[in-house]
């Protein structure tokens, strides 16, 4: 594990890539705690539309976020094929509903290209850059900016 971490530092970072609809996104693997299948969530009153509800994660109450809707795309219709990426965002743990996990990537900073100018404010807020891997385009997401603490407290 130690050598792994050292390698990580010197050879860039590892990202976990996932699919929402036709698009691919990725997040830093260090913030991902686990990946699990979809289970029906208990819906919450007065929650923003992208919060699908809460599920039981080994005794902890875990909110589930429809990442598609959160990123401004159309709402997901969760099926058993959907997966939940359990991620650490700041002090909290959230479940991100995505279509599928596609890849684990090891990249260096040179691989990451800046977000193109055409992006609007929503995309600029969460996108930290794009990667071109084997002809695919993968957008790197910054989870912290997607769920700032102030927002979750005010919500």
């Amino acid at each position: 594990m130690t050598t792994y971490a050292v390698k990580n530092l010197t050879h860039g970072r590892e990202l976990i890539a996932f699919r929402i609809g036709e698009q691919e996104f990725c997040v830093n693997i260090m913030s991902v705690r686990e990946i699990r299948g979809w289970t029906p969530a208990t819906s919450m009153p007065h929650a923003p539309p992208y919060v699908l509800g809460v599920i039981n994660l080994r005794g902890a109450v875990l909110p589930i976020v429809d990442l598609s809707l959160r990123l401004g795309m159309k709402p997901a219709e969760p099926t058993v094929r959907h997966v939940i990426i359990v991620a650490q965002v700041g002090p909290k743990v959230v479940g991100l509903l995505v279509d599928a996990v596609s890849d684990i990537l090891t990249v260096t900073n040179e691989n990451i290209q800046p977000t193109p100018d055409i992006a609007n404010e929503t995309e600029k807020a969460y996108a930290r850059g794009i990667l071109a891997i084997e002809g695919r385009m993968i957008c790197l997401i910054e989870l912290d900016s997607l769920f700032p603490h102030t927002e979750s407290e005010a919500a």
């Binding site: 919060v51 509800g53 039981n56 909290k92």
Partner: peptide, 19 residues
Amino acid sequence: NYTHVPGIAAATILGDGRV
């Protein structure tokens, strides 16, 4: 992991594993 929800005091987990 979430936030205070008005009208809801807390959560619990029932026998079927659901919240």
